[in-house]
Design a protein around this nucleic acid. Sequence first.
DNA 1: ACTTGGTAGACTGTCTACCAAGTGCCATTC
DNA 2: GAATGGCACTTGGTAGACAGTCTACCAAGT
Lengths: 252, 252
Amino acid sequence: MTTLSAGADATSESPGVRHVKRPTPLRESVYEALTEMIIDGTLERGRHLVEVELAGMLGVSRQPVREALQRLNNEGWVDLRPGFGAMVHVPAEDEVDQLLAARAALESESARLAARKPDKDAVARLKELCKVGANLQETGDIDGAVRTNGELHGLITQMSGNRFLVDFAGQVDRRVRWYYTPVAPVRGAASWREHTRLVKAISDGDEDKAAQIMREHTEHTRKAYHDLQAGTTPVEAPAPEKKVTRRRRTTD
Amino acid sequence: MTTLSAGADATSESPGVRHVKRPTPLRESVYEALTEMIIDGTLERGRHLVEVELAGMLGVSRQPVREALQRLNNEGWVDLRPGFGAMVHVPAEDEVDQLLAARAALESESARLAARKPDKDAVARLKELCKVGANLQETGDIDGAVRTNGELHGLITQMSGNRFLVDFAGQVDRRVRWYYTPVAPVRGAASWREHTRLVKAISDGDEDKAAQIMREHTEHTRKAYHDLQAGTTPVEAPAPEKKVTRRRRTTD
DNA sequence: ACTTGGTAGACTGTCTACCAAGTGCCATTC
DNA sequence: GAATGGCACTTGGTAGACAGTCTACCAAGT
């Protein structure tokens, strides 16, 4: 998922070209490793990330780590404080709301575009994913269900044929996955019923309906998150931390 | 020089904090410099950007240049080919379409949210911007009008109160500005009339209408771009000139 | 004429070492 | 207990080195 770069990728080239072994730059691997460690909690929220420490941990030098950290900062996974270092981002309470609002806009548009010209093959795979996901959910494989959920949403955005939507929605989805995993068990069953209706609408080419369902779908997710939040925890005593000067993309 | 980013610092913080000297990291300055050079055509599309060359040109070492280039790559301004280097991105024909489709989704949602809780102050500034922009347009100051246009759209997304929408829309807008500047003169007048209606809807708190207008607004822009494209360009440059020094500042 | 092989130059990707400046923390002091 | 001063740590940036790779070009072989 390498962002908005070139269009001339291998995806839609003439069928004969199969690029063989393109060794990934180290910074890329480091980036992947770090996001994974953040998502699975190895690197807890708020933890101070020291370049040389990570470098040692991953067996590389400072340089690739720095480059990876900067990308992580740009995408909001860590907060980079000048002269001090990176800390794993601690999400604000309203952040999930905003994230899901953004997702609603992006994916509902994607669903609309996908329904506008539904590709036979892709629709088949969507149906397959629905089935698989519902099964995983039922058997209690939450991680698998969450992953399948991501694949389904990802495929729908790809069906939109809009690389910007793909990219943005991809970023958002990954973040949502991070915050959301604990919520998934509760929400799961209903979620997959909605998915099925959504796929139906796309398959039928009913773009208004598809967009509508996707919107409600995300809205339900938001609700579920709030309910869980209200019900379970006054969690995480909000320590009176100093202001975290957030440096995303644009300079402060 | 970023108009958008400046807002986050002092404007909305608690009134006592005035960061006296925040020396911007070099990579940030380099990033700004390069985007500016790309937008104004100093770095032509497709040009191979050599790290050490840029470093010399800007009077810094390779590292900040690398970091800037990587960010530019992530945001789609350049394409990074492993082992070879960066080339200024050459937009595909369908790219503007996709960009504007993404903008439609992002900004129409922003307009909706802005209208949901219209801030008195912000609305006043919107009206001001409308007036200023229309004037600039009328007096033929295209660059100024385009800039003001950006500010207006930026302010609306900020009014949404959603940092992700702000961020994504900011990226998209900047890209649009790059591709779009030559179109602006044609489209200008009507565009500013639509802006006025849009601001009215936001001010009235009519969220459906605001979202609707913003959508149509972007759609009209897309149309205008296509019309211009069809009218002016016989697609492939007939003359095989290699070095086309692009002058896009004033009317060709 | 077309392929093959070789050679050379240019850049990137990564590493190491180093220094200046900024930040947080802790002990000392009032 | 609060202000102060100092120290250790970390980043930000620079310089230089080196291997791997990509491009171009030239020469020889078929």
